[in-house]
């Protein structure tokens, strides 16, 4: 994005502003820092992260307290492995969270980005800062993306800690039957966290776009969450298999490829490409909407 576009969008926001006004790097970074600070100071953000962290802990406690051993093939994948290796608590926690809990929390944060400020009447103050609308949009998206990472890490970290607390932890058995050392297991856990974070970037971009459409944040949140459910329902209909590779949720559960030996990065690449496509399309839509919008609140 060139300075020219930025200054253009600023002058569109406030026609009276001086034409020479461009984003000073210092002020722009200050906006990002303040956005992240506000995001992670909110009680709601921490409530969402704690709710996510509770998922693997609940799984671990339930398996620990239950007298009956989980049988292979019943319940979520890897559940039967949990008693043998606590690290699988994190993996099972992610598998359980991916269809609903993670999209739910990401939908709340991404849907709130612009609409929340508009609803509170603070959007025009943010735009009064000389950084410009485009930079504000970018900052809001970065905030949502950082939340995706925090949400995923909340599940993985809580899962690993619960696994360490309740079950023996040792060398990890991969899907291929090979066993890897503990340090390599942590590396794979981080890779999986990275995969899931990337998986949620497309949904965040959709939420950002919805958020520019309305001043009612709940509407944008609900629309984002509903869309994530609709995408998964469509993905499960075999009649629509031509559409499946285009759905942002298509590769969500394929992070299991990172648990194969040798490690398989094919789905990681395909997922990143797909999410990048969603980011570009919905980023462009959000740009079109946001820079042409009359900001009244």
């Amino acid at each position: 994005m060139s300075d020219r576009t930025v200054s253009e969008s600023v002058s569109a926001a406030s026609p009276a502003a001086a034409p020479a006004e461009t984003a000073p790097p210092g002020g722009a970074w200050a906006l990002l820092v303040s956005e992240l600070t506000v995001l992670f100071r909110r009680r709601r953000t921490w409530a969402l992260l704690l709710a996510l962290a509770a998922v693997p802990v609940l799984i671990a406690v339930a398996v620990r307290l239950s007298s009956q051993e989980p049988t292979p093939g019943r319940g979520p994948p890897f559940l039967d492995q949990v008693t043998q290796n606590g690290l699988f608590v994190a993996v099972t926690g992610l598998i359980v969270s991916i269809p609903l809990f993670l999209p739910l929390t990401v939908g709340v944060v991404a849907g709130d980005t612009i609409a929340g400020e508009a609803g509170l009447g603070t959007l025009r103050y943010l735009l009064a800062a000389p950084a410009g609308r485009v930079w504000l949009l970018v900052v809001k998206y970065i905030g949502a993306a950082v939340f995706c990472l925090a949400a995923t890490l909340a599940v993985v970290t809580a899962g690993v800690l619960a696994g360490l607390a309740f079950f023996p932890v040792g060398p990890l058995t991969l899907l291929s039957g090979d066993t890897i050392s503990l340090s390599e297991s942590f590396l794979r856990a981080l890779l999986i966290a990275g995969y899931v974070t990337v998986s949620l970037l497309g949904l965040s971009a959709i939420g950002l776009f919805f958020s520019t459409l309305t001043v009612v944040p709940v509407g944008a949140m609900a629309a984002t969450i509903v869309l994530s459910v609709v995408a998964q329902v469509l993905d499960s209909l075999p009649q629509l298999d031509w559409l499946h590779p285009w759905l942002f949720s298509h590769y969500w559960l394929d992070f299991a490829d990172l648990l194969r030996q040798p490690i398989d990065f094919t789905s990681f690449g395909a997922n990143a490409l797909l999410q990048g496509g969603y980011l570009l399309v919905f980023g462009a839509l959000a740009y079109g909407r946001f820079v042409t919008k009359d900001i009244l609140s």
Partner: peptide, 26 residues
């Protein structure tokens, strides 16, 4: 290696040893 969504079937031949491993039921 036959890759399934959350599991994998492996057929490994090494000399005269033949292993069949199914991660779905371990």
């Amino acid at each position: 290696q036959v890759q399934d969504t959350m599991s994998e079937r492996n057929l490994i031949r090494n000399g005269s040893d033949l292993w069949l491993y199914d991660s779905a039921d371990n």
